[in-house]
Design a protein around this nucleic acid. Structure first.
Lengths: 234, 234
DNA sequence: GTCTATAGACGGATAGAC
DNA sequence: GTCTATCCGTCTATAGAC
């Protein structure tokens, strides 16, 4: 359970503990949390079945460790990006586009990092927002509490005329769009063979212009809510 | 002596087969496909464990039956809605907003139907777009093939100046936003207690204005993407 | 069509040797 | 820290009585 922190700095071969985390992360994306067994994980990690219980205790604790490893750093970077735009605003309110970019841009940057597994993790994370498992949702909610409070607060202040419920919903919609953006083609072969241009470098501007268009859309008119949603409007 | 196979039209109590489908649908939303066992299903349905195998064969076949029951009708309605706007256009191209409304409006109508389980199903469907299970993805892709071809084709024609990749991506983003819209608060307690206004009647205009804002956003500018050769040309 | 009983595989977790 | 061996629960699926 406890890592011996020796001062031997010689390029360490990946420890069992890390190999297990990497294998679990990859398998969770491939098969989902429930459908991934400890045996699959230890087998891919080249470790013994008992090792995962030794290092993490339970499967649930392993799941948390997989998420925490990346999420702590991601949220730190998101907050740092928000700090930067707020400092740059120099006392004034940052623009909504800057706030959106601080949050979703940072996310997409991690998603574009295929070398250190960031892309794998972001696909996992995007799928996990809607995870049925209650303990995972609870855990994610805690990890996100501070970040959401900061970003939503900034958005509220930057859009003083807009009802907060509306901003909240639109942020929610943006999360959905980002989740699918990251899941990309691999989420669904619905669009099989049709994503001719899946260049991850282009995903960022693509998504960002969509998100900002949605965020800045005219407010919905609720006056006709009671009527049948006609197709002739607008 | 009790099971009359002929049409005795007097108020039919829900058959075992239908009770199983209802129970499975609800449990799939609650716990996910993998985490829902046949025992949970038959127990909630008030049926015997062996009944599900008798009626459906395997668990995978049951999953397909749960989706097919609703999806066939939903896609029929989506196509009918598209037919209507195309007929109303009277030879001209329908507006993008009309096409979007035909697809997502129909979806949200089913999601608003809490009386016949439509809302339950749509939450399940939204989550299933990113389902890891390969057989489920394959099945969904087949069910969607015709609908997507029709709607994407209509969007392409209605936006002749816009690159098709861009439309495809934006449709993908819209699917993500809708998925989260339907999952709503229950998807994640991230926003715990903050969705003061979760009136499903208002969800439709809320989402629609976001989607149309995103769809009509100015096209992304790829010129500053990176240093890749050839990208700055267009 | 519905039931009981059970086969047969796999799941998470642990004990204890090394 | 890593291993083998194993406990014990749950899973899907089926056989066969009624």
């Amino acid at each position: 359970m406890f890592k011996v922190t020796t001062a031997d700095n010689r390029s360490p071969a990946p420890e069992t503990r890390d190999r297990i985390l990497d294998a679990a992360e990859a398998l969770f994306v491939e098969h989902g949390l429930e459908a991934t067994s400890m045996r699959m994980i230890t087998s891919r990690a080249g470790a013994n079945l008992a090792a995962v219980n030794y290092h993490f205790g339970t499967k649930d604790a392993l799941i948390q460790a997989v998420f925490r490893r990346r999420l702590t750093e991601l949220n730190r970077q998101r907050l740092a990006a928000l700090d930067r735009v707020e400092v740059a605003a120099n006392g004034a309110q940052p623009k909504p586009s800057q706030i959106v970019e601080a949050f979703f841009g940072t996310s997409l940057e991690l998603a574009a990092d295929t070398e250190h597994g960031g892309s794998t993790f972001m696909r996992l994370l995007g799928r996990t927002y809607t995870e049925p498992n209650a303990f995972v949702r609870q855990f994610l909610a805690e990890e996100y509490a501070e970040v959401l409070e900061r970003f939503l607060g900034a958005l509220y202040r930057s859009l003083p005329g807009v009802p907060r419920e509306e901003i909240l919903w639109r942020f929610h919609f943006m999360m959905g769009a980002m989740s699918y953006a990251i899941a990309g083609t691999d989420a669904l072969q619905l669009f099989a063979g049709t994503f001719d241009d899946a260049d991850p470098q282009r995903l960022m501007p693509r998504l960002m212009s969509f998100l900002l268009g949605g965020l800045r859309a005219p407010l919905a008119d609720f006056s006709a809510v009671d009527e049948r949603p006609g197709l002739d409007a607008a």
